[in-house]
């Protein structure tokens, strides 16, 4: 009885989590001109349609470029910050940690608006630089969090042992510290990439016509159109996240990376 009850609860929970995804994926194959579920007949033409639309493809390239560069900039910063927070004897490192993690708790609309106002006031309005800086800010907490978690589990004496065995500080970092924090770093980079790629609220304030991102162009597209091409793009995004998760599980072990 008890087992049956929990079985039902778990099934409902999974349905609740997965159903929207399934609905979107299935409707992307529908032949009808407007989104319908369940679709009457199937076609791939919305995928071809979406991939041929420059507003989607150029936005996708923008998003990709933005996610890659903001993650790439945030990664060395996160390594340095994690080292300072967990290893250093820096005064006020708890405050530093709180500040670095703050973008997780501050609503991102506030962050977007704040950066817009501050950068205009400072006369700093280059679209893409500002956008990247903002994305670095929201990606950083994820990287710092996962990297510090890995670093805490790394015995600092292992680094001292490497030093006594003839490794200078650079080689100690490359051979001992970096491999030790690689799982957390990798997980953080993937989280960061997805967070940046999916972000709407901050890009909304800071993107312009040239730096329009994919989530933004999807949003503006659905304001006037309701054909399944939006579902097709969404399905591609879901697929991308799935591939990344599977790759992470394969190469690093998702559970291990998340520290479970």
């Amino acid at each position: 009885m008890n087992r049956l009850f929990f079985g039902v609860v778990i099934a409902l929970l999974f349905t609740f989590i997965l159903a929207p995804t399934v609905v979107i994926a299935l409707s992307s194959f529908g032949t009808s001109e407007i989104l319908e579920f369940p679709p009457q007949s199937f076609t791939l033409r919305w995928y071809a349609y979406a991939l041929a639309r420059p507003e989607f493809t150029s936005a996708a390239w923008n998003s990709l470029w933005l996610a890659v560069s903001s993650t790439a900039i945030a990664t060395p910063l996160a390594i340095a910050a994690s080292l300072a927070i967990t290893r250093g004897r820096l005064p006020g490192r708890e405050v530093l940690q709180t500040i670095l993690l703050a973008p997780l708790v501050v609503p991102s609309v506030v962050i977007g608006l704040a950066i817009l106002l501050a950068s205009s006031r400072l006369g700093f309005s280059s679209g893409s630089t500002r956008l990247i800086a903002a994305h670095v800010l929201i990606v950083l907490p994820y990287l710092v969090r996962t990297t510090s978690a890995s670093l805490v589990r790394l015995d600092p004496l292992a680094e001292e042992a490497a030093r006594t065995l003839g490794a200078n500080s650079l080689r100690t970092f490359l051979h001992v510290t970096l491999p030790g924090l690689a799982p957390g770093l990798l997980a953080g980079m993937i989280f960061g990439f997805i967070i940046s790629f999916d972000n709407v609220s901050i890009s909304l304030f800071l993107a312009n016509a040239r730096t329009n991102t994919l989530p933004l162009s999807l949003m503006s597209y659905v304001e006037y159109n309701l054909d399944p091409s939006v579902a097709a793009v969404s399905t591609l995004l879901i697929l991308m996240a799935l591939v990344v998760a599977i790759a992470l599980e394969r190469f690093a072990g998702l559970r291990k990376t998340l520290g479970a």
Binding site: D155, E160, R163, P179
Partner: peptide, 20 residues
């Protein structure tokens, strides 16, 4: 002389092996 140029070796209480 910096640590890595002293030609010594050290064993710690926690074995301090490289886990990876």
């Amino acid at each position: 002389v910096p640590i890595h140029k002293r030609g010594i070796a050290m064993v710690f209480q926690s074995h301090a092996l490289f886990p990876h």
